[in-house]
Design a binder for these strands. Structure first.
Lengths: 203, 203, 203, 203
DNA sequence: CATGAATGAGCTTTCATTCAT
DNA sequence: GATGAATGAAAGCTCATTCAT
């Protein structure tokens, strides 16, 4: 007896996600052209053909992964943080804390961040446009916090967006390290904060 | 009239260098597996076969490029800098200045730096060992300067090697940006220095 | 309530026939290797797996279709026609009339005829032997009529079997046209008859 | 020392033609989906990759073959024949003679004709448009001759284009037979002529 | 029985490498 | 030496077939 449409949909959705999740790390580590479908499918634990049941090509799978990366949830949380009625210094401390926690705990967070580098490496227009959108929103809210901090005297002088870009660049850097090196020591919260914050005394 | 052996040698050496130089950027941008010999030779302006006159395989050409990157000159200069009888703060200011100048001026310096990331991305053992050696020496001398700075009170607290790694990580980051994005604003000397240096007042 | 064995048998037989009937046109249009099971099952309106409940392989399904084509009924009718105590000219007129009527009315008659061409295109031995058998019987009885006609002076000169082959060849031709072209005008009875028959005056 | 551009051009052109020529028969016999690149290249006597040096895909190679088929030379000769100041009966006798000669002698003429059937089988629009053009021109000039014959009383009654289509249909039929069956007897000139011509007496 | 998701053998295509010129 | 056409191993992709439900 055939399964109901809902059951099928559920099974499909589950497998699709499994492929997507397990692929992120693989693509992040090996890049697009460095990733072989045969290896990938072995790593996921499915047949090669199965990937093509869910994605029409390797290219397309990669694009879907890049879409996955744009997590609106992250953006919302940052937006919320930026609007809280507290000191900028405190916001930055909190943001740094959160990021380091995620880098430490969640392997796919690192992969996600690393794939941003991938987006830069591949100069395909479609990708970069998506990436830019996400990036720019993250950067905008970070820049807001930076501006506040500059008014309050806790954040260093400089163009807010450029500073935001610097801050997130450093995050990228350590995501890469987390992903590719085995015995890596994470950056300290102080070091990351110092990209933006002045020393405490100066307030 | 047949040329002398020296002339032959010179001509050979010239072409070999041309290939090497023009390949750096290509590999840096596209990675090892993302670089096709057909594209590369077109970019260099020679026939595909010519590459194989000078390098026995793509693999080998890539290795030679990685060797090129390990510029002993740079290490020597840094070693010299580390031993000068001046303040660490001044040394760091000077180092930062030099690096930013090179990043701005020399395209292949950025490529070189970016290839270090490449080395991380490709998990081939042979490469990484070479890379590590070079890296570690650069880091060691940078760490020396950091230690001096910590004694003098101008450099922030933390494990010297870890801080050196952080400093060079930021340099990598901006090398990547230089290489892959068109309209990019470089990091300011202040921002880069702040990875290591305390604010001026604190000395 | 469980069904009786007969009912089961009936249901089975019904589905088997449905698949067979709906497949003829598909195979006729696209050939053996040009027909995908996924497309075919969609066209029939059943699941892919269902085909394999009734036929052990695509190869086997195709063979069954070819068997279907060998309609003993047709052969019997032609045999009967060939033995009637009437003029050959009349027999041929009748045969032509019948064929054109079927070509016009019955889509699967065209498909059937077209599949003979398919049999020729695919050089699989097993198929062709079946086909040949059928063909030869049809040809034999047609040749009988031709011989009669030659004796009576109404049919043109030539080897009877070769003429029979020519006649049926033209029928194949218009079956193909019916099948593959949309706005097609059928051959006239006169044109088809003229493959065999002399002009009326000559009797 | 590298070859001159002309030399390369010549070599390229030669190989391209070799592939094209040797492929016609293969595609004609096995159809598009029945033709494997591996078999084809073996049959041509070259490596699989070589085909892709000259044609970007199997699909494309097939399209080029279909183009090849449209031989303007044939059309010109038929146009010339249609305008000669001789009897239509004579023209048709000559045309039939020429066609049978070519069918007998030139294997690729049969293949060419057979591929027209292929064009019908594959319902791709791009192909059919080309095919139609060629077909229609051949048909037009044949129809011209038929009209002349009808005025002269030597050709049977009926729509000229439809009769032309019938005549060429029979040619297709015997091209197919030539191509696919080993021990085949060709149609006689008389039989082919009879598709159009009345018996001699009737003039 | 009926289903369609999963599979892998086998196809098409790519690209590092060879080699005649 | 220098070239780019030719190659085939290996990659991407398809589709007949299997199988849990």
């Amino acid at each position: 007896m055939p399964r109901s449409p809902q059951q099928y949909e559920e099974v499909r959705s589950e497998m699709r996600n499994k492929i997507l999740q397990k692929s992120i790390l693989y693509f992040a580590k090996n890049g697009f052209s460095g990733t072989k479908i045969s290896d990938l499918s072995k790593h996921i634990g499915i047949g090669q053909g199965t990937i093509y049941v869910y994605f029409e090509s390797k290219e397309r799978l990669f694009q879907e992964i890049l879409k996955q990366i744009n997590r609106p949830k992250d953006i919302k949380r940052l937006k919320f943080l930026s609007k809280l009625p507290i000191r900028a210094r405190q916001k930055i401390h909190y943001l740094t804390h959160e990021i380091l926690k995620q880098l430490e705990a969640d392997h796919s967070f690192s992969a996600m961040i690393a794939l941003h580098t991938q987006i830069l490496l591949e100069q395909d227009e479609e990708h970069s446009s998506d990436g830019t959108t996400y990036q720019s929103k993250l950067y905008q809210f970070t820049a807001k916090i930076i501006e506040q901090g500059q008014r309050e005297g806790s954040v260093v002088f400089g163009h807010p967006l450029k500073l935001a870009d610097y801050y997130w660049g450093v995050v990228y850097l350590y995501a890469l390290k987390k992903l590719f090196t085995t015995k890596y020591e994470m950056i300290s919260a102080d070091d990351l904060n110092r990209t933006l914050l002045k020393e405490k005394g100066g307030e």
